[in-house]
Computed example of a mutant assay.
Amino acid sequence: MQMKSGLTRTMVEMAVLLTLPFAVTGAHAEPELLVRPAIHDTRASNRVMLAISRAGERLVAVGEHGIILLSDDNGKTWTQASVPVSLTLTNVRFVDATNGWAVGHGGVVLHTVDGGKNWIKQLDGVQAAALVHEAAAAAAGEGGEDARRALAAADQLVADGPDKPFLDVYFADERRGLIVGAYGLAFATEDGGKHWRSISERIPNPQGLHLYSINVSGNELFIAGEQGSLFRATGGWESFTRIATPYAGTYFGSLVANNNAIVVFGLRGNIYRSGDAGQTWQKIDGGNTTTLTAGLRLPDGRLLLVNQAGQLLQSHDAGSSFRQLTLRSASALSGITQAADGSLVLSGVRGVTSVTLATQFAEQKQ
């Protein structure tokens, strides 16, 4: 991994704010926020929420100030979880009804074993920097200019402190997990997060581009990031290859359709589709230039994308075309999942909203 050495904290903060659509607080984490529990807020469900996931039939949303919300009635009502940090949380995933992980600013990784009611901190930016430095120092001992540059970058990472956010997390089961984030940071665990190791060097990302999202289909794992970066690993995450794409801007996510077509989406409403494993790409018209922030593949094969205008884009043909759907009361959206009753639950700048696709959206003609 090659970090952008010499960046001041302000430059780091600006870089992340410009590329992460819903990073509403600075990327730099004050040390006390790593140990200050999230406050309980009577208006928590109206706070900025950045991501939402399913834990069995429970819904779990994460957002600013360490707020984590839980719903056991398909998003009608929400309660607040006990969280040990006050940092903005950017993503959350569960492997079953009880075991889940959340990540966010300050390089923080949280874990729950009770369906999201209570969380513990497994990793933070200080510890993550130390792990990167340890790996770089070991590699530098073997010599080589690349290894020396990596060690210098690791030195800078340690000096910066806990200011690099993680942006996505994925666990294959209760033990094997992966986290990615700003400046190409990537870590893996084989024991449920008790121990982590840096795997940034396994991703061909010498520029240290931000890595925004993880998507898994079958035995293939995709990581999407800035400057048109898309990486694929097969059968695990020990070795990644870069997939060339025609876009030079940021991808905030990817989806794999039922026919294995790959759809990537992101900045300024850009959508690209490949039906041949990334060898060739087709630009898909999404109807506008509003940044797309998250996506979901429904069990029936439909693909849904959400954007900063409070719209959904729906595809019935494996991503070959999309039509716009607009919330009657629209606000910028950042995440989407499907509740146990089939309704859609959305996260965004006005908190969390539960809607029924058939009745709560008005179709926009393209």
Rank of each mutant, 00 (worst) to 15 (best):
D168F: 08
E201T: 01
F265P: 13
G348N: 13
H65L: 11
P21M: 13
L110C: 04
L69R: 09
L167A: 03
M49G: 03
L178Y: 00
I262H: 08
D285P: 03
T289G: 14
W196R: 09
Q324Y: 04
D300H: 04
N260G: 04
A152I: 05
D146Y: 00
H133Q: 09
A137P: 03
E226Q: 12
T234L: 01
L292Q: 07
G6F: 07
R47T: 03
D285T: 05
L313C: 06
L178M: 04
T10F: 07
K194D: 04
S229Y: 01
A135Q: 11
R176T: 05
F22L: 15
T42W: 03
A15E: 06
L70S: 12
G192A: 15
P204A: 00
I223W: 00
E13K: 12
D72G: 14
G106L: 10
R175E: 05
V24T: 14
L17P: 02
S321K: 13
W78E: 00
T42D: 10
T337Y: 03
A186L: 01
R323H: 12
V345K: 06
G348E: 08
A362C: 08
G266A: 10
P21C: 11
V109S: 01
T79R: 09
M1H: 00
F171E: 00
G278V: 13
T289I: 15
G66V: 08
R93F: 01
Q324F: 05
T293K: 06
R273G: 03
V12R: 13
H210F: 00
A294M: 13
I243N: 01
T289L: 15
L157G: 01
A150G: 04
F252K: 06
W101L: 11
S329A: 09
D114F: 09
D168R: 14
L333A: 05
N99R: 13
S229E: 07
W281T: 14
R36P: 02
M1L: 02
W101N: 11
S321L: 08
A277N: 12
E174H: 10
P21E: 14
G66A: 11
G115N: 12
R47S: 06
V355C: 02
S347L: 10
I336K: 09
Q127H: 09
P37A: 06
A139N: 08
R175F: 02
F231M: 02
Q80T: 09
S274V: 08
R43N: 10
F322A: 12
V62P: 04
S5T: 15
L296R: 11
G275A: 14
D163W: 09
T337A: 13
E190S: 07
I120D: 03
G351F: 02
G181S: 14
T356F: 14
L157T: 06
L292S: 05
D285Y: 04
Y183P: 00
Q207W: 03
G287Q: 06
E57Y: 04
S320E: 15
E174A: 15
D341G: 06
Y272E: 12
D73W: 02
M3E: 01
R36L: 07
Q338A: 07
V62N: 07
